[in-house]
Simulated scan of single mutants.
Amino acid sequence: MSKVQNLKKIKSLCLLTLGGTVAYQFIYYKKDFPGYYENILQPLSQHVNPEWAHKLGVTALKYGIFPPESFKDPSVLKTKFLNNELSNPIGIAAGFDKHGDAISGLRRIGFSIVEIGSITPEPQPGNPKPRVFRLPEDNAVINRYGFNSEGYENVLKKIKHIDKVTLDRGILGINLGRNKDSQDAVHDYTLGIKTFNEIADYFVINISSFTK
């Protein structure tokens, strides 16, 4: 057997192995996503830079890579909050979806309350990297993002493109921050309330995390 034939066989074997692996992953993902997440995705994420892992999670929700929640909330979880009837009282706080990218995805996986931000009037980069740190012994993460934000107007444009039915399915909170170089924090927060007034169900005024 020639060297060329051997190389072709090795290439075919590699392609077959890769195809089988991809097919197995896809079947596992479709059949048992909770198990796939717990046994594959979550362990893999621990080997990725924590800030990149955060971004990947938001992106996956943004583009619907995570399947929608098929579990139907039991009636005992129904609650009324801010004059809204919710199927459950579970919400996600600001800090995860900082720029309003994953509102629809978070709704699809079962959150009734989604709070985005903190958002600042003008775009700003936040603190220098590294700024997200894992604490494996505590199963925890510390972030020192420092109000990295795309700015009020950019986030507002994203929210306006979300289907109204999706927004009406739960409660949307807007967490407002101030710019690092702002000389008038009250103006920044007031501008935020005016900007998102017709969309937000509630506001949070964040005074704790701006960079110095």
Rank of each mutant, 00 (worst) to 15 (best):
M1W: 04
S2G: 13
N6P: 03
N6F: 10
K8D: 07
K11M: 08
S12W: 11
L18D: 08
Y24G: 07
Y28E: 10
D32I: 07
D32M: 15
Y37K: 14
E38Y: 14
I40Q: 06
S45M: 06
G57W: 01
G57T: 10
V58I: 15
K62C: 01
Y63M: 06
Y63S: 06
Y63E: 06
G64H: 10
I65G: 05
I65D: 08
P67Y: 09
E69S: 11
L77V: 02
L77C: 08
T79L: 03
E85M: 14
P89S: 04
I90K: 02
I92Y: 02
F96N: 00
G100N: 06
I103E: 06
G105S: 12
S112V: 03
G117M: 07
Q124E: 15
Q124H: 15
K129A: 15
P130Q: 09
R131S: 06
R134P: 08
L135N: 00
P136R: 05
R144A: 09
R144S: 08
V155C: 01
V155S: 02
I159P: 13
I159D: 00
H161I: 11
V165L: 13
V165H: 10
T166M: 04
R169K: 14
G170A: 03
G170C: 03
N175M: 06
S182A: 07
Q183L: 11
T190F: 01
N197H: 15
E198K: 14
I199M: 12
D201M: 08
Y202I: 02
I205R: 01
I207L: 14
F210S: 09
K212H: 11
